[in-house]
Design a protein around this nucleic acid. Sequence first.
DNA 1: AATGGGTATTGGTATATACCAAAACTCAAC
DNA 2: GTTGAGTTTTGGTATATACCAATACCCATT
Lengths: 249, 249
Amino acid sequence: MARKLIRANTPLYLQVESTLKEMIEESVYSTGEQIPSERELSEQLGVSRMTVRKAVENLTRHGFLERRSTNGTYVRQPKVRRHVGKDVAVGLTQLLAEEGSVAGSKLLRFEEMRAPLKVAEKLNIHVGERLIMLQRLRTSNGQPFCVETSFLPRDIVPDLSRADLETSAASLYSILLGRYKIRLSHNNETLKLSYATSEEAYLLSLKEGDPVLLLRVVVLDENDRAVEYLKSVNNPDLVMFSSASTLAF
Amino acid sequence: MARKLIRANTPLYLQVESTLKEMIEESVYSTGEQIPSERELSEQLGVSRMTVRKAVENLTRHGFLERRSTNGTYVRQPKVRRHVGKDVAVGLTQLLAEEGSVAGSKLLRFEEMRAPLKVAEKLNIHVGERLIMLQRLRTSNGQPFCVETSFLPRDIVPDLSRADLETSAASLYSILLGRYKIRLSHNNETLKLSYATSEEAYLLSLKEGDPVLLLRVVVLDENDRAVEYLKSVNNPDLVMFSSASTLAF
DNA sequence: AATGGGTATTGGTATATACCAAAACTCAAC
DNA sequence: GTTGAGTTTTGGTATATACCAATACCCATT
């Protein structure tokens, strides 16, 4: 089982990394299976445990392996992929509502607050205006994949309550549309790479500092009134989202 | 200068990490400046060099520090941020064409080829059809931020040549529109977190395995013919892009 | 069959040590 | 001043070792 490590001028730990990656891709170790312990690998490959650790650490960070403390290291399932139906506009709400996955969400926070500067700028309102801030943990097939924080001007959703979001499985969009007749016309998104805070890490089963996608969306209604500002953090291993847009060239 | 490391039940390397992060935020070490060498820090803090290394490694991965081999470790400049103009539809081409930044691009590859399976599926054409594959390194103010790979069915751009892309600073979109009267109507994007290959790392001044954004776009014309399929890798430190879309609820 | 306690195993942390190559620095020779 | 050879410093790699806490496992007792 032990493969040769060629003494090239590539670092040993990279050679170990490639070796393990190959073995995973060739299904020598298949999905979900446990790979040999660090101590075993170290012996099999004739390198120190710390070198094996460095290789395993990298592969873990890159999603090939998953470590379970005091238990073992396992081959991860290949990342969930989505196929994007052509021509079908997909909004953020339908992020994962396809391919038989069951979308869920858990309300983490529901607070009334006054608009701080940054949010006010985004929503084009005045600092200090009344807002609802709500935070939801969104799941796909029970798997948390995204922490979403929304800011809604209070006057647009005057009687929206915590219970509305706790009880109904309905999306925020359908509530806005159904109850308040708010028809969202277009939005504005920015996106960047970021790193998980400790809280996000806990919610998404990541480690603090793991890379995540940070998405900011401002949704506008027909009158270009901003009705929502949300910031969401996505688990990169689970989510891959799409949007169809009409580009203005 | 040496700060106390509290013996809590948090790992030492995390304590070192926080300590250094604080000192950076308090500008004890300011932007661009060199921090003490690993050996010095190890002595100052009373921990082993390997422990310091682990902390520095994390901070490097998270963009706070930058290591220069045989030279030293430096505090990184805070990441570049973009403001997104409200209501203004921004296409991919205009990715960074704002706020006085000068967009540039360098042609890396221009090849004729036959469509492999994966690309054929995306473009909704047959395997083996003639394609142009072109790859560009895109820059903003001279800073590379994105590697872009495009696939164009040959019959749509019959006489597109390498020179067209080498000489003109014009975007691919404007060439398509101007010369071939191809009006792009909508697109389809998927996006996920990925890790830089060695080539991408070299082009974008990253390290192999650094997190990057991977973007796949299929652009369609009015007849829903796919005219472009591009896959781009973005340097997360420089780019933050936006798109305005009309959502279909 | 169920319980419970000891033991081995696992990944996580931490240290001390050693050598390398590349860059930076020193300083004498010109 | 400039050159150039030698030394020092830097991060990068690699090993051997040690201990920890939590889990899994085994096996005798009930």
